[in-house]
Design a protein around this nucleic acid. Structure first.
Lengths: 202, 202
DNA sequence: GTCTATATATTGATAGAC
DNA sequence: GTCTATCAATATATAGAC
């Protein structure tokens, strides 16, 4: 890689890092492009040499997050559908992974959440995103149903409900500064709440 | 009431109604004050004779909704805490009320949701709002705990988790136009999911 | 109280020199 | 590629006539 390309990569990285900081501080929606360039110590015009807009930068941040998350959030690749979410240990693993991603990548996840909600309600983005993010849960639940488990409802709806709980609660908890949460306790609570809910009826 | 005051009330009502329509169509965040006045057939300047800003208008819409909801969402008044949410019928009643409010007052509820998320994450508004809206659930859960029920976790956290599921799923479902949901089926699914979750361990 | 007209402030985005 | 300078488009809010 030449010197010029290295410098360009440096600027790009500086913009990404500055954006991440600002998203955490004042949120995605309240962060302006000029704020990002100022925070990164670059000129306004330089921004557009790397990103078409704020949305594209967010996608780049997401990409970087997924790269690092690696094996953790394996939702799209070869994640086997033969997981039984009515099994407490397997359910807890899934919740722990989701919760950990929320907590360790709070700036990016929160920004995605804000971007999703900011869209016009009529666009259906909220529902589509929710269904998309919980697709792997749905497949697990369908597998469980095939194994004879009695689920509380349609797999897609149940998966969306679980995803809604996790994402909204994660966003709220990430926003609650000054208050410290015991992550393991939260994971246990959510696991218990959902495990029994997914289990057999009385 | 004099003629002048009547005309003023008429303008105020027109602004509120126009805002509700636009919030439903393009969302709270994407609706500008000039959009509202144009939709209401009034001049821009008239807006500020009735509301200090968009946020205040939203609060007025919320007030009107609470007035009409009347006995339904009785969270602040004399709602008795002696409800046992581990009882399926009582749990279902609560979920049904929440869900019905979401569906019947979608423009206002969705707008509140957007306003909450749009705030700076560091403000803690998301967590505070969630805790505030689920305060009555928390009190019910504390009552159930006193009755010897074994809850999956701290009442405040469990209540927040339930509220998160309901509000996020409600927002997503309201955004999913073109897809029709069977509200009773959704209520049943959520009831089952949470009822068993709140019940005794295996 | 409502209107028209406008001031003020932001923001996204681009042009052109270096 | 990065910078400075600036345009164009909004959006909030106010002033003053009616």
């Amino acid at each position: 890689m030449g010197v010029r390309k290295a410098k360009a990569a440096e600027t790009r990285a500086a913009l990404l890092e500055a954006a991440r900081r600002l998203f955490a501080e004042r949120g995605y929606l309240n962060t302006k492009i000029t704020d990002i360039t100022k925070e990164a110590g670059r000129a306004t015009g330089s921004f557009y040499e790397h990103f078409a807009g704020k949305e594209e930068l967010l996608q780049a941040l997401l990409q970087g997050m997924e790269d690092r998350a690696g094996e953790l959030i394996d939702t799209t690749t070869v994640h086997p559908r033969e997981h039984d979410l009515t099994d407490r240990a397997q359910l807890r693993d899934h919740i722990k992974v989701s919760w950990t991603v929320f907590r360790e990548h709070a700036p990016v996840v929160s920004a995605l959440f804000q971007a999703m909600v900011a869209d016009e309600p009529g666009s259906g983005r909220a529902w589509n995103d929710l269904v998309g993010e919980t697709d792997f849960l749905r497949r697990h639940l369908e597998y469980s149903a095939e194994q004879g488990r009695d689920l509380p409802g349609e797999p897609e709806l149940v998966a969306a409900a679980i995803g809604a709980m996790l994402s909204m609660l994660g966003y709220a908890v990430n926003s609650a500064r000054g208050r410290d949460f015991d992550d393991e306790a939260v994971i246990d609570t959510l696991t218990d709440l959902l495990h029994r809910g997914l289990g057999p009826r009385d």
